[in-house]
Design a protein around this nucleic acid. Structure first.
Lengths: 247, 247
DNA sequence: GCCTCCAAGTTGTCAGACAACTTCGCTATC
DNA sequence: GATAGCGAAGTTGTCTGACAACTTGGAGGC
């Protein structure tokens, strides 16, 4: 109903997703048959199937030929690393109040690894944004963002305080399509320990992340030092077998 | 062609996936139009679209209404935590030779957290399998698996040496559909340090994982202690906006 | 030179039909 | 009476054809 801002199948998928999240469709339930459901939604069966396909690939539902379409018992995760992006929304998902302190930005020479990912000369100046994220006032993450100066200038970094970097990039036609995050265990040393206000040697989980557009252009590189006990970082993993077959 | 063992759209998706992986379809390329591609594959356009939908949800390709279908510059990751399951295949993906040492199994009382996940009484006996995984002979992961005794008995654990637990479970009609892994930084203490042959206090990345069937039945719980510098653990993260829209 | 508009090409959606498969109740048989 | 086999009904999978919505590039006018 209303204006299908995005494609119809995405609207359909979103609608079903909400009904599943609201437990109106409980795990194990069988959905109405496709013709029936399509009629009740006022869409064609092919569009409905396209929408259902999205949920199936997501692991939310399972289709059995000749039998029906069933809601899987997929856990509702608050922190799925393969989904959420922003740290602040991660904190909010835990029911805590996200905040930011010790924020400062500027233009600094890019470290070797960052320069390589961004595709600029090593030591070339890049816009940086460093800040400590808090949850209910507690310092939990020390994050550094690097961005090409021609995309976001050092001054612009300051302007978007509070606002998301992703929104700023999207406004410049550089929409982040995907990212690759690499996780390593770590201990807090010197500056990081100080910023997080924890003893040196405290356990950290460090995420090194590279954000790209659909065209493969790397637009943002970041490193986040997470306190070990700040919050759980989880990943939803799909089954080993790609195809659906039993025996 | 041949017998479409799985559904046709999965075969189509797999075929396209291979062509992308083989760089016959390079990132940025535009695929032939749907009617044309469908004709060349000998399938209907609707089936082709269903197959393409799978790849789109995977982030491998992008569809632009009125323009065409394009291969995205999605990185080919060797270690995508949201995809691969077995540690051995993770090691193999890094180009190293996977191995197993110090393997032993039995029936032991379930720890509280494990019992809770498996849905058994705390302290009830569960089948356990503990082993150290090696990469080119180097000890890199200390893993423990817990399983309900009525699914896999302690003796059966021994029999499947080398064989995958997942295969054994699938043979008993308990196909693993998904899993949730939680990551925490850690340090090696006592037994773990000894088994991995590293000094106490060495940095570890610990994965606590719960495997379930599509019906939501938890069939396997495991804890893996990874050496910090053994191999990179990465996750492919999809863009912040769920739907596809610019501006 | 620049802007407008149109035509061709592409993906999105719709409709109807039939095939492949599962499920369950009925029937025939032992 | 119990059981194996059969078949009809219901469901998802695939095919075909058509039209709508949208993008792109070039032709044409200003």
């Amino acid at each position: 109903m209303s204006a299908p801002r995005r494609s119809l199948r995405h609207s359909i998928a979103e609608g079903l997703r909400e009904r599943i999240a609201a437990r109106k469709l409980a795990p194990g339930d069988r959905l109405p048959s496709e013709p029936e459901l399509a009629r009740s939604l006022g869409v064609s069966r092919s569009s409905l199937r396209a929408g259902i396909a999205l949920l199936e690939e997501d692991g939310l539902i399972r289709r059995l030929h000749g039998s029906g379409t069933y809601v899987t018992h997929r856990p509702l995760m608050r922190n799925d690393l393969s989904r959420n992006f922003a740290v602040s929304s991660m904190i909010a998902a835990m029911g805590l109040e996200p905040g930011t302190v010790d924020e400062h930005c500027g233009a600094e020479p890019a470290p070797a690894e960052v320069a390589h990912e961004l595709g600029v000369e090593q030591g070339a100046p890049v816009s940086t944004l460093r800040r400590v994220r808090t949850a209910d006032g507690r310092r939990v993450v020390d994050a550094i963002d690097w961005c090409r100066t021609d995309l976001i200038g050092p001054d612009e970094m300051r302007d978007l305080e509070g606002g998301s970097i992703y929104a700023a990039l999207a406004g410049r036609g550089m929409r982040v399509h995907h990212a690759v995050a690499t996780m390593t265990p770590d201990v807090a040393v010197d500056e990081v320990a100080e910023r997080l206000a924890v003893p040196r040697g405290s356990l950290l989980l460090t995420l090194f992340q590279v954000d790209s557009t659909a065209d493969g252009v790397v637009v943002l590189v970041s490193r986040e030092h997470h306190l070990a006990d700040a919050f759980q970082i989880s990943v939803y993993r799909r089954g080993p077998g790609d195809g659906e077959d039993d025996r």
